[in-house]
Simulated assay, not measured.
Amino acid sequence: MKIETLVNLIKGELLNRPFISEVTSFIKNADEVRRGSCFFSNDFNEIKQAIKNGAYGIVSEKEFEIIDKEIAWIKTDSIKKAIFDIFKYENIKTKIYYTDKITAHILKKMNLDKKVIVLEDEETMLRALNSTEKYLISFDPKFKEIFKNIEEIEKIEIKLEQLTLFKSRYENIELNLPFVYKDNFAAAVNFFKKNNLKYTLEFELERFKPVFVNGKFEKVEYGESEMVLILGIENDEYFFKELNFLIDNTKYAKTVVVGPYNKEDLNKFFHFAMIVDMEIELNQREERNLFD
């Protein structure tokens, strides 16, 4: 990308008259900088390292001493917005696959193909910018307004068997997949198969994630305790579906929903505790010797 185009695109201010005229990649990690890179940072030590590694352009929200006058020094109001504006410019005609955030999460966990990029933050947008052959996936509704070449990932019917609250079976393989996400998993499988992309069935989700604990709130092995914390739940559009699934499958157990407003309920008796919008700090399990 030409320096003049880059400066105009991000509405930046070119602080010098560089000898170089263009950059060939966009990087936020100094160790990944190579000859020709445009580097984004507000840390002067990182900037110096990037220049040693061959950066041709520096984009920052701050003004620093220009220690290399041959490369471009560009000031911007927001690195985050600058990266998005570059991404939008470079990918306005690229097909972007759109889905819900749970399907996107499953896709990310199943993915073994470097061409597949789930767009979550600046780092993933930069990966997309530096990739030629790519399958871009977004769960941000704003993308449907900005990008015209959007294809929604299709949910299909598959044969999936529920084994337990947290496990399912697909094609005779046991999965760490709560059955409540059957449709989301089906959409992910369809995407990989339809596009001949590499994926794995050995994955573990961060949402509806079971953590077995003992009475001292120490993490124990799967199935070692009757007390289970269900982590990664958010009070969003999927919450009631997950809650109903939990209630339907734990009718003979003590099940509670715990959030920041009723944390004390974790001190009471329960079998299953769905933790909503909250992080849990577990106690360290004591090491026991052979004679304990």
Rank of each mutant, 00 (worst) to 15 (best):
F239G: 02
K159L: 12
E152K: 14
V213Y: 09
I83L: 10
F40T: 07
D100H: 12
K167M: 05
K182Q: 00
I47W: 05
A72E: 03
F208K: 00
L9C: 11
Y89D: 09
Y170V: 04
E70R: 15
K2D: 13
N195F: 03
K155E: 10
F239A: 06
F84L: 11
L129R: 04
V23K: 09
E221Y: 11
F44M: 07
E161I: 09
L282M: 06
K109R: 15
S168E: 01
E145K: 15
K75H: 06
A186P: 03
D77N: 13
Y135N: 08
Y89A: 13
F185C: 08
E154S: 11
K52L: 08
K241P: 03
D85Q: 10
K148G: 00
G54T: 06
E218L: 01
T5Q: 13
L177R: 03
A253F: 15
S60K: 01
L231C: 00
V118D: 06
W73E: 07
K155P: 02
A55R: 08
S138D: 02
D68I: 08
D77M: 13
E120T: 14
F64W: 10
D265A: 06
G54N: 10
R169P: 01
S138M: 06
E151P: 00
K251W: 07
F40S: 10
G232R: 07
N214E: 03
G36S: 06
K198E: 11
N16P: 01
F270C: 00
F191D: 01
K209D: 01
L243I: 13
F84S: 06
S21E: 13
S37H: 11
K95I: 06
L229V: 05
D248M: 07
E287W: 11
E202W: 03
F40H: 11
A273C: 03
R127Y: 07
F270H: 13
P210Y: 02
V211G: 02
F26W: 13
D265I: 15
T164I: 02
Y89K: 14
S37T: 08
I92Y: 02
P18L: 10
E234L: 04
E161S: 04
L231E: 14
P260A: 14
Y261S: 09
K134N: 08
T99R: 07
F166R: 04
E234R: 14
F245P: 01
K2Y: 14
E90W: 03
F44T: 08
K209L: 07
I27S: 12
T99S: 04
Y135R: 08
V257S: 01
E218K: 07
I146W: 02
L112P: 06
S25G: 10
I150R: 05
K251I: 09
E286M: 10
E202K: 13
L129Q: 08
F19R: 15
L9Q: 12
T94Q: 14
I20G: 00
F270E: 05
F19E: 15
A72T: 05
K254V: 12
K115S: 15
E264Y: 12
T200A: 05
I230F: 07
Y181L: 15
N283D: 01
